[in-house]
C-alpha cells in the first residue's frame, strides 16, 4: 500500500479513469474548446522553469497540442508552479493566480511542490503547495523532463474535457482555509507590498 504522495496521485488519476461525468451539451462543447486551447503563463517560479523552454520550443513543440505561452495572467488559463516555492515567490504566485480569470488551472512541477523535495528542511520554502493554492495536476520528478510535462498537460486536458478540473471552484469555496494557510507563512498582509522606485529613474521609461 502506497502512502503519502503516491496515494494522492492515485486519487487524482483515479478521477481521470472514471466515466461518470455529468455535463450538458453546451458545457461539453465549451470544455472541448477549453481543452483544445491552453494558454500557459510564461513565468518561471523556480528552477523547474528551465525545462519549460524546450517544452514550448522546437524540440518538443507543445504548440501542436494547442498549448502556448501567454505573457500576462489576464490571458492565461494555466499557471505552472515550477519547482521550489519560497515565501517571496508564493506571495507573487498567489497574486498572479488571483488575477487570472476563471476557469483557471494550476500545474505543479517537481518534487518540491509535492513535499518540499530537497528543500524539505529549508526555513524559507513551503512544503505542500496544495495547502496554499488548489492544484490540478502534479508532475513529479526532480526535474521532470519535457516529456513528463507534456504528459501532465495531456492528463490535464483530459480532465478539462470531462469538466473535472475545477480547482478554481475549490479555491473559491474553501477560501478561508487557503487564506488561513497563506497568512500563516506570509503574515497578515498577503498582497505584496511594493515600491516601484525603478520607474522613476531616468532612462527607464
Amino acid at each position: 500500500m502506497e502512502t503519502g504522495f503516491l496515494q494522492e496521485q492515485k486519487v487524482l488519476e483515479g478521477d481521470l479513469n472514471s466515466e461518470n461525468s455529468h455535463q450538458n451539451s453546451v458545457d461539453f462543447l465549451m470544455n472541448w474548446f477549453r481543452k483544445q486551447s491552453i494558454f500557459v503563463l510564461a513565468y518561471g517560479t523556480g528552477c523547474g522553469a528551465i525545462e519549460m523552454p524546450p517544452t514550448f520550443t522546437s524540440r518538443y513543440d507543445a504548440e501542436r497540442l494547442g498549448i502556448r505561452g501567454a505573457a500576462t495572467p489576464r490571458q492565461a488559463d494555466v499557471i505552472i508552479v515550477s519547482g521550489y516555492c519560497s515565501y517571496k515567490t508564493l506571495r507573487r504566485i498567489i497574486r498572479t493566480y488571483e488575477q487570472m480569470s476563471n476557469p483557471k488551472y494550476l500545474l505543479a512541477l517537481g518534487s518540491c511542490t509535492v513535499n518540499g523535495g530537497m528543500y524539505w528542511d529549508s526555513y524559507n520554502t513551503i512544503k505542500k503547495l496544495e495547502d496554499y493554492l488548489p492544484v490540478d495536476m502534479y508532475v513529479n520528478g526532480c526535474m521532470p523532463r519535457p516529456e513528463s510535462i507534456l504528459e501532465g498537460f495531456i492528463a490535464l486536458q483530459k480532465e478539462i474535457g470531462e469538466g473535472k478540473a475545477s480547482s478554481w471552484q475549490k479555491y473559491e469555496e474553501n477560501y478561508e482555509f487557503y487564506r488561513k494557510n497563506q497568512e500563516a507563512v506570509l503574515g497578515k498582509k498577503v498582497e505584496p507590498s511594493y515600491e516601484a522606485d525603478w520607474y522613476l529613474y531616468e532612462g527607464g521609461l
Partner: peptide, 23 residues
C-alpha cells in the same frame, strides 16, 4: 536572522510548516 547559528532550521520548519504524510 536565519544564518545565525542559534537559529535551528529543522525546529523552525517543524513548528511553522506542515509536511506531507509519507515522509
Amino acid at each position: 536572522p536565519p544564518l545565525r547559528r542559534e537559529f535551528d532550521t529543522l525546529e523552525f520548519v517543524n513548528n511553522h510548516l506542515t509536511f506531507r504524510d509519507g515522509r
